[in-house]
Every structure is written in C-alpha cells, then in structure tokens.
Amino acid sequence: MKAVTWRGVNEIGVEDVPEPTILNDHDVIVEVGLSATCGSDLHLMGGYIPAMRGGDVLGHEFMGRVGEVGPGVTKHQVGDRVVVVSFVGCGKCWYCREGLWSLCDNGNPNPGLTDALWGQGIGGCYGKFPLGAVMNKALTLRGAQQHGHRYIPEILDRMSRDEVKTEHLATHVMALDDGPEGYRMFKEKEDGCVRAVFRPGG
C-alpha cells in the first residue's frame, strides 16, 4: 500500500508500506478515498514528538470505504462509506456514552507514560499524541479538542442538504504522490492553502 510517511524533521516521503491487518476484534480496515492534512501534523513533521520513527505514516483525518471488519464489529460492514475521527473511542466507557469521545478511558493502547506524567491516562488516537484530552480531562487548562464523533452525523446531514460548504477548506486537492509538496504548502500556507487533501487513487 502506498502511504505518505515521515522520513525525518520536515522531510516527507511517499513509499510502499505493508498492508494493514486487523489487530483488535473491533478493528475495521478503511480503504482511504480522501485524506486531509491537519494542524497537528505540523508537530509531527517538525520533530516535536520524540517517539516518531522514520517511516511512520502520516494522516489521521480521512474518509473512505470499509474494506475489512474484525470479528467483533457489528455496526459496520464491508462496503460502508465512513468518515473517520482521529480519536479512538471504545463507545462503552462513561466518557464515550456521554458523547465525550476524545476522553475515552479505553482507546489508548499504551497510556503508561502520560499516566505517570499527569496522573491520568489519556485517550488513544490515530497517529498523534492526544494532548487535548489531557487538558480536558486531567488539568485545568482548556484545549481545543473537539469530540468530533458527536457532530459528524449532523454535519453530514447538513452537507447533504447543501447547508454546509466545504470548498473553501479543501483548497488543494492532489494525488497522494504529491504528498510531500502538499504538506509543504500546508505548512507554509502557500497559495492560500487551508488544507491539502490527498487522493490515493491519483
């Protein structure tokens, strides 16, 4: 599978990586149709996240089609069109049940360090360090963290009625092969770039 990867500080590449596989019973594999750049990618690009390794795949805001489901998945089936929020919510803990998805108690596969640092484990998320949850959950600081899952149905509904325009956000739609250029333009805000959006198919 082709992916945009982090090669080193401010060095982005496009390379072949192994095909994803189901790890948890509740996993699904999404065939990505479109993937957007996110402001927090800039922290990853700039080398501010110490755990980054060369070859790590970038991109945690995406949509597509369900290609495979784990044995514990009941809500989705192969072929469903889905929008993915970067935070991993279990859907079962108190926070998820209250719609506070980014504060999920169970979504982080390895929260030991943050537990030690802040006295509270933090939520899990795809491809970044979820500091927002710490701010909401454990400290008195307020973060800009959105509980995005909660709003997606309403946003999709409004988009289908043409009440929400998104053209001004997806300013630069390009092929995945142009990922390094797209991330550069996004970082420099070149040519009025609000979001670079990548299409794996070209």
Binding site: V17, P18, T21, A51, D56, V57, L58, P109, G112
Partner: peptide, 15 residues
C-alpha cells in the same frame, strides 16, 4: 505494552 515508548504514528507491521 510497557516494553516500548508510548503510542506514536506507525506503519502497518510486516508479516
């Protein structure tokens, strides 16, 4: 999980 540094972006594992 404690074997390794906390979560980070990654790529799918090889076989």
């Amino acid at each position: 999980a404690r074997k390794e540094f906390p979560q980070h972006p990654a790529q799918p594992m090889t076989a």
